[in-house]
C-alpha cells in the first residue's frame, strides 16, 4: 500500500450531463464517497488520469418513497442515510437489515450504496437484498438513459454493465406484495469483515403456501446470483420444514464458490445451505406476522 496518491486532474461538475461527458472507463473515474476509489488508487489498482466528483451535483442524495412503485435512492445516498431512512424501514426492511451488517460507521457515513454496487464485488452486502427485491438500476450515458434489472448490472467480479461513458444515477426498488417477508444472513470471520457467504431471501405467502420466492446469494460466484432452481421448486408449495430444506439444499448446489483466504469452497457451499435455511425460516415467520 502506497502512502500517497499519484497526481490526477480533478473535476467537480454540477450537472450529470457534464459528469457523463467527462467519464471514460478506468481513465476518467467517478468519485462518490471515495471509500473504495481512493483505496484502490493508493494500491495502484486504478490509476485514473482524471477524477470526476459527483459530490457537487445537486439532488443526488435522496432516499424516498416512489408511490406504488416502492422506493428509490440516488447516487449520493450514503449507506447511513439509507439505513436510517424511515421509508426504508417501512418498505424495505430487508435492505436495512443487510446494511446494518456493515459495521464500520465511517464506511457507512462516507460510502454510498450505489458506489458499493459499482465496485461489483461478489461479497457486497447491498446487492443480495436488491436482487431479492427485484431492484432496477438507472443508467445515464451521453445521449441515452436506460434501466436494467440488477442481475444484468453485475457482469463479473469487479465488472459492471456500465459502458465507459455511463454512470448510475438511481436505484428503484419495487414495492412488495402483501404477505411478503424477507431476511438477510451474513457469515463472516469477524463482524467487521466482508462476507464469506451471505444470503437474502424474500418470500410471499398466501394461506401458508409460497406464492413467490427469491433467493440471492453473495460471495459464492463471480457475481451475486439467484438460486432460481430453489425458487421455482418452492412456488405453490406449503411453507414447511421439508420445502425449506429442499430449497436450501438446491441453493447450495447453485453456488460455485472458490477457496480463498476467507474460506474453502466446500465450507462456503455448506454454509449456503445453512444460511438459506435460516433465512427462509425467518422470512416465512415475518411474512406471517
Amino acid at each position: 500500500m502506497h502512502r500517497v496518491l499519484l497526481p490526477f486532474e480533478f473535476f467537480e461538475p454540477t450537472t450529470i450531463k457534464e459528469v457523463v461527458e467527462l467519464v471514460d472507463g478506468d481513465k476518467v473515474r467517478v468519485l462518490a464517497g471515495g471509500v473504495d476509489l481512493v483505496l484502490k488508487m493508493r494500491r495502484r489498482e486504478i490509476l485514473p488520469e482524471k477524477v470526476v466528483s459527483l459530490q457537487k451535483v445537486p439532488g443526488l442524495d435522496y432516499v424516498e418513497g416512489n408511490g406504488s412503485a416502492g422506493l428509490k435512492f440516488g447516487a449520493l445516498a450514503t449507506l447511513t442515510q439509507i439505513e436510517q431512512s424511515e421509508v426504508v424501514m417501512e418498505n424495505c426492511a430487508l435492505l436495512r437489515e443487510a446494511i446494518s451488517k456493515i459495521v464500520s460507521v465511517q464506511t457507512k457515513t462516507m460510502g454510498t450504496a450505489i458506489g458499493n454496487l459499482c465496485v461489483a464485488t461478489p461479497a457486497s452486502d447491498v446487492a443480495p437484498p436488491l436482487y431479492a427485491m427485484g431492484a432496477r438500476i438507472k443508467i445515464v450515458g451521453v445521449d441515452a438513459e436506460r434501466e436494467i434489472p440488477i442481475e444484468e448490472f453485475f457482469v463479473d467480479a469487479g465488472k459492471t454493465a456500465l459502458g465507459p461513458h455511463e454512470i448510475v444515477t438511481e436505484i428503484v426498488v419495487p414495492s412488495l406484495p402483501s404477505g411478503s417477508g424477507g431476511a438477510f444472513m451474513k457469515l463472516s470471520k469477524t463482524a467487521e469483515d466482508i462476507a464469506k457467504v451471505n444470503a437474502a431471501v424474500m418470500v410471499t405467502l398466501a394461506d401458508g403456501r409460497c406464492e413467490d420466492a427469491r433467493i440471492a446469494l453473495g460471495s459464492v460466484a463471480p457475481t451475486p446470483i439467484r438460486a432460481i432452481g430453489a425458487e421455482t421448486m418452492m412456488k405453490g408449495q406449503k411453507m414447511d420444514k421439508k420445502t425449506i430444506e429442499e430449497a436450501s439444499a438446491s441453493a447450495a448446489e447453485a453456488a460455485t464458490p472458490i477457496s480463498d483466504i476467507r474460506s474453502t469452497a466446500e465450507y462456503r457451499k455448506e454454509m449456503v445451505r445453512i444460511l438459506v435455511k435460516d433465512a427462509l425460516q425467518e422470512a416465512a415467520a415475518r411474512a406471517q406476522a
Binding site: 480533478f10 468519485l31 471515495g34 471509500v35 481512493v38 483505496l39 477524477v51 466528483s53 459530490q55 447511513t80 460507521v105 465511517q106 464506511t107 457515513t109 462516507m110
Partner: peptide
C-alpha cells in the same frame, strides 16, 4: 459532524 476517514478523503472535497 460525520465520522469520516481522513486517509480516504481527498482534501479538495
Amino acid at each position: 459532524g460525520k465520522p469520516s476517514f481522513s486517509c480516504l478523503t481527498l482534501a479538495v472535497t
